[in-house]
């Protein structure tokens, strides 16, 4: 469940970027990792107050999102295809990963905010207060995000550009600004996921890749561009991961996600909630 909540956040953040920009932003995982390292830097290295550190991290996340969108704009200005953008994204991913290695070195870090608490028993499962707060917080963020996309002005323009960029431009919406906005929002939401993950696990430069591929997979399975779909896909994955290991060796846990993704891509590429005609097949 805890993993599911975090996957859902990552899936939602990825989905926002993918739906508006229409290419696979593989570097999302690296961005997530980088931003979580920022929190480690502010909180553990500089010893700032936790709330302040989180706020600073969010600020940094927004900045990273902004920079990245400028990066992609360079490619987009050259009429790059989505495959070229994907390659650019791979380049960006390597770059950020190496940057983390240079800045923070390869060994694992812990944020160490909370002491390990005694778990309480709920429905025959042991769950710690931290895990409960992770789930509650994630659901809250997802709710806000979903309201934001549905109701707010920026959310509406995001959806407009996602649907038909040309028409949106005719109506005076700057697609470029919307792309930038989607990267900033995506980066912030992913960072929230990274922070929640970092509270429970150790930080490693590669942490983002696993999280984001599961997030991608959840977004694809749930249907791109639908937050409910992302939540559903993520819950499905956390269930598959955790119940799957009853039947097959635990080493296959990671592979299981990819098997499900593979099956979905071949059999139902538009996901559970997505619309058939929206996928460029």
């Amino acid at each position: 469940m805890v993993a599911g909540a975090i996957y859902a956040l990552v899936a939602a953040s990825f989905s926002i970027i993918y739906a508006t920009n229409k290419f696979l932003h593989v570097a999302h995982g690296a961005v997530l990792a980088l931003n979580t390292y920022f929190l480690y830097f502010f909180f553990t290295v500089l010893g700032l107050n936790f709330v302040l550190s989180v706020l600073l991290t969010m600020l940094a996340a927004a900045l990273v999102g902004f920079t990245i969108s400028k990066f992609y704009k360079q490619l987009r200005d050259k009429q790059a295809s989505s495959a070229t953008l994907l390659l650019g994204s791979i380049a960006l991913m390597i770059f950020i990963d190496s940057l983390i290695l240079l800045l923070f070195e390869g060994n694992t870090k812990t944020i160490g905010l909370l002491k390990v608490a005694q778990g309480i028993e709920l429905f025959q499962a042991i769950i710690t207060p931290l895990q409960i707060s992770i789930i509650v917080l994630s659901l809250f963020v997802l709710l806000v995000l979903s309201l934001f996309i549905k109701k707010s002005r920026l959310g509406t323009t995001l959806r407009a550009v996602a649907d038909t960029p040309e028409q949106a431009e005719i109506l005076g919406i700057s697609a470029n600004q919307v792309y930038t906005a989607s990267f900033i929002i995506g980066s912030i939401v992913a960072t929230l996921a990274g922070i929640l993950y970092g509270l429970e696990h150790n930080l490693a430069p590669t942490m983002g890749i696993k999280l984001v591929f599961t997030g991608f997979a959840a977004a694809v399975v749930g249907g791109i561009g639908s937050i409910q779909g992302a939540v559903l896909g993520a819950s499905l994955f956390s269930l598959v991961e955790n119940f799957g290991i009853w039947y097959i060796p635990s080493g296959y846990k990671d592979a299981l996600v990819f098997i499900v993704l593979f099956l979905f891509l071949t059999l139902r590429p538009h996901g559970i909630f997505g619309f058939k005609n929206k996928i460029p097949l």
């Binding site: 696979l24 989505s82 997979a217 694809v220 590429p269």
Partner: peptide, 12 residues
């Protein structure tokens, strides 16, 4: 499967 989705599937 095409383009992005092919990349994702082959990666999987």
């Amino acid at each position: 499967i095409k383009a992005d989705y092919l990349a994702l599937a082959t990666l999987a």
